[in-house]
Write a protein that binds this DNA or RNA. Structure first.
Length: 266
DNA sequence: ATGTCAGGAAGATCCTGA
């Protein structure tokens, strides 16, 4: 089974390159973030035309929004409202998978604004609170019991080689010590496997996002690993392959994030 | 590296968010 995560930065605007990706890579399920449309506006028919006929959508007008689209039938399990703000930042589904069920959680963690100080920046406070609530929920609800995948734009690049310069980004939201610590607690709460780093050693650079603001993103290569795929321990022996589709950053009218795909022997 | 994108409301440009 092949699962992709991709922050698409408007699913309606990006549908041509989503179609290109699905035709070329054919994952079983694709998890999208920043769909930026209401559920009724989701481009269902475009996906159906490509053989993806099952949907779990949590959208809202203009901002945020997550979706899981699948070839195989799946059950919508939940759309959790972290921090009780009414934001569309989570959706989960269950696949029957022939008697050994698989759950997928798809997240869009708050970006956190510019100033890494919770006292003066409510967006940063929201991000930190969101992470605390994720950790509590994972532990309390035993979220990682069984076969579970958590994907999404977590808006944090935790390791030194997850950013182009550890030193330059220590005070930049996405790589500050407090964010990294809180993301670590989320991981510990579920004993999650950071699957991307199973395949790429932590000493090697690994990015999934490059700013739109660079004049030449490829030349400067000032990326960050903001997108993640985590797996519960029960999936440890099934992890076959991982791929970051860097070339998608050069596609026509690209997202600033690229697709990340995990292949499981299930 | 404050640069580039997106959506929305308004109105043919601005704003907010990232």
């Amino acid at each position: 089974m092949k699962i992709t995560t991709w922050n698409i930065n408007s699913v309606r605007l990006r549908m041509p390159i989503v179609a290109q990706f699905l035709k070329e890579h054919a994952p079983d399920a694709i998890c999208l973030q920043e769909t930026k449309c209401r559920n009724a506006e989701f481009p269902y028919s475009d996906f159906r035309a490509l053989g993806y006929e099952h949907f779990a959508i949590n959208g809202q007008k203009g901002y945020h929004g997550v979706a899981i689209v699948s070839k195989q039938p799946m059950e919508l399990l939940e759309t959790r409202d972290f921090c009780e703000k009414g934001d569309a930042r989570h959706v989960s589904v269950g696949f029957a998978n022939g008697g050994t069920p698989l759950t997928i959680h798809n997240f869009y963690v708050p970006a956190g604004g510019d100033e890494p100080d919770r006292e003066i920046n409510p967006k940063f406070a929201h991000k930190l609170d969101f992470l605390d609530e994720m950790a509590e929920w994972i532990q309390r609800d035993r979220v990682t019991d069984g076969r579970v995948i958590l994907v999404g734009d977590l808006n944090i690049a935790p390791l030194e080689q997850d950013v182009w310069s550890h030193k330059a980004l220590l005070q930049v939201v996405s790589h500050t010590p407090i964010e990294v610590e809180k993301l670590g607690r989320v991981i510990d709460a579920g004993r999650w496997i950071d699957t991307m780093r199973r395949f790429v050693p932590k000493e090697e650079k690994l990015y999934t996002w490059w700013s739109y603001r660079a004049s030449d993103w490829e030349k400067s290569d000032r990326g960050r690993r903001l997108d993640h795929i985590w797996a519960s321990e029960a999936l440890s022996e099934t992890l076959e392959q991982m791929h970051v589709l860097r070339e998608a950053r050069n596609w026509t009218r690209p997202s600033d994030h690229v697709p990340v795909t995990i292949s499981l022997a299930i």
